[in-house]
Design a binder for these strands. Sequence first.
DNA 1: TTGTATGCGTTATCAC
DNA 2: GTGATAACGCATACAA
Lengths: 340, 340
Amino acid sequence: MKVTIRDVATHAGVSPATVSRVLNRPELVDETTKEKVRHSMKTLHFQPNAIARGLSSQATHTIGLVIPGINDLFFTELYGGIERASRENGMKVLLFDSQHSRSRSLEGFAFLKQHQVEGIIFSSKVVTDDYDALLQRLQIPVALTLTEARGGISLPAYKVDEVRAEFDVVSYLVSRGHRRIGMITGEETDDITGELRLQGYRNGVIHYDIGYHPEWVEVGNYRFDSGYTAMQKLLERQSVNQLTAVCAASDEMALGAMRCLYDMGLHVPDDMSIVGFDDLTMARMTIPALTTVAQPFAEIGAQAVHSLLGMIQHPKEPKPTGVYYLPHRMVERESVRSLL
Amino acid sequence: MKVTIRDVATHAGVSPATVSRVLNRPELVDETTKEKVRHSMKTLHFQPNAIARGLSSQATHTIGLVIPGINDLFFTELYGGIERASRENGMKVLLFDSQHSRSRSLEGFAFLKQHQVEGIIFSSKVVTDDYDALLQRLQIPVALTLTEARGGISLPAYKVDEVRAEFDVVSYLVSRGHRRIGMITGEETDDITGELRLQGYRNGVIHYDIGYHPEWVEVGNYRFDSGYTAMQKLLERQSVNQLTAVCAASDEMALGAMRCLYDMGLHVPDDMSIVGFDDLTMARMTIPALTTVAQPFAEIGAQAVHSLLGMIQHPKEPKPTGVYYLPHRMVERESVRSLL
DNA sequence: TTGTATGCGTTATCAC
DNA sequence: GTGATAACGCATACAA
């Protein structure tokens, strides 16, 4: 029925220990017996039991990943980077979807702990002080992606410099002759991302002597529909605002905004320029193709993995901490008009 | 350091077996000792070791999922349905990305076998005879999604009736007055999907006395760029073809086709109607929003899980077999013009 | 209702 | 270079 290491051993006429050795330390075993054992493994179709190995060796070679929601469109790229980097280093990845629920992210830690993962990548919203005790107890290295720690707690975080990125968006727009630039940002509550991007926008409009006008800003929740609604509100004030461009804190909201403009009979970019944030796969598939700032999701994931690997391999060395910025990149496509 | 069932036992003044019982068969243990044990678990922050449980009980409560590629845009919805149905039934899911490689899908089975999953959902291309021996040996229930088995091998498959779905697309187009309907299909080699959708198209044009014209058909690989290229080729023959509508075998190709038309100065749907296939999240976010046929990805995933659950719980009963069709649905949006 | 003893499949520490 | 043997953390017959 199920073939174990013992079956292989008897079939090859050796001890289980030797079979285990050809699996883990083949250099320690004689060439001929090694061949013999391998042959037995083939013919018996032996598959080592990863569960038993994990229990015995106390090493699961697995990295846990907590994500906010599998349906978030950037997720697959992040995962791709993580999975690849893990695989290249002999690690597997175990996924946990917190479904945008704070309590479920906590569950995620418990789940991954139970499965003896050797490191955890966390990418759900802010990580605040109240995680502290939990994380201490965990005794598992943790790295953050697309978010950062707040308060006393210190965990390494991998992301783009969002303040700078959004500033660069404003710069780009200014360089195209825009001055009356609005923004659709993300929620500020429990979400550091929206806060940072808004800060970048604010820095930009102040830096370029445009001034910060609260009435030029609307808040969304990163999703398409909220982008639509936000643009509607902006449009209601358009006669006084006279915006020529709007930057959104996500590609999805940017597309929602474009849809709203379309429904109002306005044309992008002729009547209004739009810039997104993320550079999702679909950003190049729309008409007009979306000008946006690209986050290197795969690279961010890979960096987090490498960071974890370091902590796993050198448990006694001081752990990395603070925020590591990966380079963002303006992607110029068709949704911005030059006023010059 | 790490707290086990024994630690809890001594702390609560009971035997390890009792602790194990409150975990697995709480009804068998006295109310007061149960409380005592649970209290100890809390204060010691006990987390049961899933690895050890799996080894001991021979039940991992895990379903394995082999997907062709994490970056395929429909994947997250399929996964969502699978994860949800699994969770509702006390199961976890372990993911394996075959990266569109046949050999890697084979590896996937080995990987999942090693991790002692109790069932496998497979969704990579065709499953043919040569999988047979492997699958037999596996001794693990397998269900297919978005594909089906070919040859002698019989595995339950969950998907839409693609022939019928594409036929319905043609019907829809005809009902809007179209007759000169082209198609961008998927690869026919090693891919049953493209074959079936083309068959549906063919049935349609024949049924409506339009006739099948090979020169109205181009082949792509489901991706955006291939849709673009295919439409280019179609356009080269447009003076003789005089197509008024094109249906694509995927939403991505449909968008690629739309982009091509846009670049050629043609307007959708005024100059050409376009229909997709899948109803990806982004289908409603484009302008014009894409008319397409929706696959119930989440439902397909959930059905596959339930099918697996049945096989797991009743190992001796005959396993389900054949193809189970889930209802597709025409989603009417803006990319088709009525000629009537 | 609770405790003891054994096994799950593998790794690892010893001897030989 | 190879073979016994004891963990790994938990579940479960069997006893009590």
